[in-house]
Amino acid sequence: MGFKLLSKLLVYLTASIMAIASPLAFSVDSSGEYPTVSEIPVGEVRLYQIADGVWSHIATQSFDGAVYPSNGLIVRDGDELLLIDTAWGAKNTAALLAEIEKQIGLPVTRAVSTHFHDDRVGGVDVLRAAGVATYASPSTRRLAEVEGNEIPTHSLEGLSSSGDAVRFGPVELFYPGAAHSTDNLIVYVPSASVLYGGCAIYELSRTSAGNVADADLAEWPTSIERIQQHYPEAQFVIPGHGLPGGLDLLKHTTNVVKAHTNRSVVE
């Protein structure tokens, strides 16, 4: 069995187990497998329904001669939608809004960016022009300005110390501490036991640490421990890039980060 097929099978099995364990909360999309990078042309966006009122959005972007996937989250909030992270750029984010209108038909009224990198804030200006209120932590807003990236308009308070959590509509926002970046936030959907790890969490097929220019490698494993301790009931975990899975993604990420750190020390 090929690795790609095995990865998709694991996603399907995880979703099936969740649907059985929580039949009222989960209505997993039966329309197909989780979209992969090879299936999404740059400039297009796919939506994948995880649970009743919960979707991931998947886009792709060219970077350094390669094409990478990027995940975000959409959560229903009454007759409105909360968006977590842009679709990595203005063109993708405009396509995301169009796809949401086509498939869901509810307005996106608020959006949260989970850290300051372009795959999370690139497209904020498109959201703002569409009347979406954009939010991020003060740290993310400051770092985005320093980096020359787009800056969300509103500040999220109460997320300055490791372990801080605040309720934001249908989700809980959690600051686990520094990891992929010093400002990275985690998003949890309690009604569906869905954990969105953003770039602080890796997919299972990833074996290298990737972009760690703004990471705190020493603190990252401790931050992941905080996530595990705060959300032990999480059933569906979405990484910032690639295929979702279960809580095993947290341990896998820790292993990859520690291996990278150990290699760096040896070198």
Rank of each mutant, 00 (worst) to 15 (best):
V42P: 06
G65M: 13
V124P: 01
V42C: 14
V189R: 01
Y202G: 08
A59M: 03
L143C: 09
S205P: 09
I238S: 07
S160T: 11
L9C: 09
I104V: 08
G177A: 00
A51I: 09
E172R: 08
L217C: 13
V132A: 07
Y68N: 10
A129K: 03
D125P: 11
I50C: 13
F168K: 05
V124E: 05
R263P: 07
P190G: 06
L96N: 08
T182R: 07
V256H: 14
V237I: 02
G32F: 13
P23E: 08
G148S: 11
L83T: 07
G210R: 09
S113Y: 04
R226Q: 02
R226G: 10
S264K: 04
R110K: 02
N149H: 04
V112C: 13
K8H: 03
E203S: 08
A215M: 05
S70V: 09
H241P: 01
A94S: 09
S223W: 00
G158E: 04
S205G: 08
V11W: 14
Y135C: 02
A178Q: 12
G32Y: 15
A178D: 04
Q235N: 02
V108W: 00
I227Q: 01
I100G: 12
S27E: 08
V256F: 13
V265E: 12
D164Y: 04
T60C: 09
L24P: 06
P69N: 15
L217Q: 08
E267H: 15
Y135F: 03
V67A: 07
I201D: 00
G131I: 15
G198R: 00
I40R: 06
S205V: 10
H154A: 11
R120N: 14
S27W: 10
R226E: 15
V121Q: 15
F168V: 07
L82H: 05
S181C: 09
N149M: 15
G210H: 14
I40T: 09
N92G: 11
P221S: 12
L249K: 02
S191Q: 11
S264D: 08
L47I: 05
R76T: 06
P170V: 07
P221H: 05
V256K: 11
S38E: 10
G148E: 07
D29N: 03
R142I: 15
T109M: 13
A19Q: 12
P190V: 04
K102S: 12
Q61L: 05
Q235C: 02
